[in-house]
Nucleic acid binder design. Structure first.
Length: 244
DNA sequence: AAATCGATGCTCT
DNA sequence: GAGCATCGATTTT
């Protein structure tokens, strides 16, 4: 057989393999029957932010499941929002996932050492930042991941409190998780359970974006479950307002 | 309980 | 070269 033919055969074979794999991965249910489907994510930021609250965030590493309930999120709709990294349709290699299929994980590094984890929504450049979850499963593993950069042990309540703490404890890194399609993943995905929908949502300002200017920093784009002990920064005056 | 401050490295302009 | 969707240790009220 000529070299040319050999190469041709190799290419053919690999094409076949790829196509077979595609067929295998054709539907969501075959990859991960439990993950919420595309339709869940294909809604505007505001709606996705709301519906993420109370849902379960799952992360699988080496067959170990880490699980937590989402209790705090922020929306970054892009466009006019000066706090969004996709402000004014700005596109860079880093923020590309914000423009990808709804349900794409956008994980980026900040301050050199920390990660932030977002999920893209329907809008071009729109995404939801996950700020806190209540740890439910794999808590010992989370402690391990978290203890890497810490001297003092962390209370369960504080494990996933804050966007980068959440990433550290659940091992959500840019290398592994960025651009993952959460509607078709068994590495990082969202599930629902019988958790009651009957909670109040506090709507208050986003954290750590003061440099975007008061107009946008002041918008009530941070949502969390009222009274929840796992939220990173509770706005008690807002919580009181809602009681009236 | 709050305020301050340094760590730390990558990305974009 | 500037700035960052943060955190944790330390210091101050």
């Amino acid at each position: 057989m000529s070299l040319k033919n050999k190469l041709y055969k190799t290419i053919k074979t690999s094409d076949k393999t790829i196509n077979n794999n595609r067929k295998k991965l054709k539907t969501t249910s075959e990859i991960n029957p439990t993950s919420l489907p595309r339709e869940f994510y294909s809604v505007p930021c505001r709606e996705l932010a709301d519906s993420l609250l109370g849902k379960l965030l799952l992360r699988k590493i080496d067959n170990v499941i880490l699980k937590g309930r989402i209790v705090e999120v922020e929306m970054y709709p892009g466009g006019e929002d000066k706090a969004s990294s996709s402000y004014n349709e700005r596109r860079t290699p880093t923020n590309e996932p914000m423009y990808m299929t709804p349900g794409t994980a956008f994980v980026y590094k900040t301050y050199g050492i920390y990660h932030c984890f977002n999920i893209s929504a329907l809008e071009e450049g729109g995404a939801i930042l996950l700020r806190a979850v209540e740890p439910l499963e794999g808590i010992e593993e989370m402690q391990k991941y978290r203890s890497v950069r810490k001297k003092t042990p962390t209370k369960t309540q504080d494990l996933c409190k804050g966007p980068s703490n959440l990433c550290t404890s659940m091992c959500i890194t840019k290398e592994i998780c960025n651009k993952v399609d959460m509607a078709q993943s068994d590495v990082l995905w969202v599930e629902t359970d019988d958790f009651s929908n009957d909670f109040e949502i506090v709507r208050t300002s986003r954290i750590g974006i003061d440099s975007a200017g008061i107009e946008w920093a002041g918008k009530p784009f941070r949502f969390y479950i009222k009274g929840n002990e796992y939220v990173s920064k509770r706005d008690l005056s807002k919580e009181k307002e809602l009681d009236v």
